[in-house]
Structure formats: structure tokens, C-alpha cells
């Protein structure tokens, strides 16, 4: 199957999530996808929403602020899901990432997240394994070695809880990871 066949824009929508913890190499993969002309999320909407929340509050998010942030991110994910109506699209994180976010803060999943997870289903989920330098000696700074590993695990768990069977993408350079991902995709039905 050629890339052109995969990219055929006249097919029904095919939605694929690429996710993983911080330091998993997601940005490099999305940059490469965009350079290849593969339709994919530009930037990460959650970042801008997060910055907006912090700016509005004038401080770090507190317990009471987190679910409001989470709901705004969910709304953005749902919009992005619905905006795509034909052909292939790769999403930079997906709706079930919300489970990982909530679990990170010890929050229980809220009804809107569970409903959205049930209604808006992606065709497949790719989880980028942490890059090799995740554990390198230079990175033995606790923000990386503890919390970020935990975030990665919680994101994976969120997708399992949402009923997905994620495909793990081994640590490699971005181009090889994309080849791996594209090789897993079925021939699109026209």
C-alpha cells in the first residue's frame, strides 16, 4: 500500500491517536508527519488551554481548577474529532488521555469524559514508548525519572480503561516510528 492510498481523502474518516508520556518523542513524530504531508494535529491544543487557565488564574492550578481545565480540553478534543469528516487524520493525544490526567491528580473520571469516550471512538491508538534518553544518566533528575514515568503509565492505563488495545511504538527516530505506525494501518475502504 502506498502513502497516496493511505492518504486518500475520499474515504470515510479514519482517526488515529498518537500519544504517550512527556519525553516520548511525540513532537518529533508530528513534525515529521506534517513534513510528509500527512494530515495531523498542529500543535497541542491542551497546551494553549493550560496556559490560558494559568493566565486567567494568575497562579498554578489548584484542586478546584483541574476539572474545569480537563473539561475545556475534552471539549477541544471532541471538536477536533468532529471537525474531521473524511480521510486519514492523526491526533496528538485523544479523548482518553483525560483519564490519565484525572488519575495523575487522584480524580475520578467525570461523566462527560466517560460519555465522550463511549461516543467518539478512534480507529487505533499508538503509544510511543519512552525514548532511550528517558533513563539516561544525565536525566536522573526527579521530575523526569519519577513523575513523567508515572504519567506515561497512567496514559496507557487510561486507554485500556477506555476499551482500546494500544499499539506500542518502539523508541526509534521519528521517521522509523512513522513507518512502523503506517505499516499497522489497514487499507482504507473507499
Amino acid at each position: 500500500m502506498t502513502l497516496q492510498q493511505l492518504l486518500n481523502p475520499t474515504t470515510p474518516p479514519r482517526r488515529y491517536v498518537i500519544t504517550g508520556g512527556p519525553s516520548a518523542g511525540k513532537d518529533a513524530v508530528f513534525t515529521e508527519l506534517q513534513e510528509m504531508g500527512v494530515p495531523a494535529t498542529v500543535g497541542e491544543p491542551a497546551r494553549e488551554i493550560y496556559r490560558a487557565h494559568r493566565d486567567r488564574l494568575g497562579r498554578h492550578l489548584q484542586v478546584g481548577d483541574r476539572q474545569a481545565y480537563s473539561r475545556d480540553v475534552l471539549a477541544a478534543f471532541v471538536r477536533e474529532f468532529c471537525d474531521h469528516t473524511a480521510g486519514l487524520h492523526f491526533y496528538n493525544r485523544g479523548i482518553p488521555d483525560g483519564y490519565g490526567w484525572d488519575a495523575f491528580f487522584g480524580l475520578r473520571p467525570y461523566p462527560e469524559l466517560e460519555e465522550a469516550t463511549r461516543i467518539y471512538r478512534y480507529d487505533a491508538v499508538f503509544i510511543l514508548d519512552a525514548l532511550d534518553d528517558f533513563d539516561s544518566e544525565d536525566d536522573l533528575v526527579w521530575a523526569k525519572e519519577r513523575e513523567i514515568r508515572r504519567v506515561h503509565e497512567l496514559i496507557i492505563q487510561g486507554y485500556y480503561d477506555a476499551g482500546y488495545k494500544p499499539i506500542f511504538v518502539p523508541a526509534d527516530d521519528a521517521a522509523r516510528r512513522i513507518s512502523f505506525i503506517l505499516a499497522q494501518l489497514p487499507v482504507p475502504a473507499v
Partner: peptide, 10 residues
């Protein structure tokens, strides 16, 4: 740190 909300929160 990567530019990632999870990383920022972590």
C-alpha cells in the same frame, strides 16, 4: 522539559 502539559504539571 518537553513542551507538554503533563510535563509542566509533573
Amino acid at each position: 522539559l518537553p513542551a507538554d502539559v503533563f510535563a509542566w504539571e509533573a
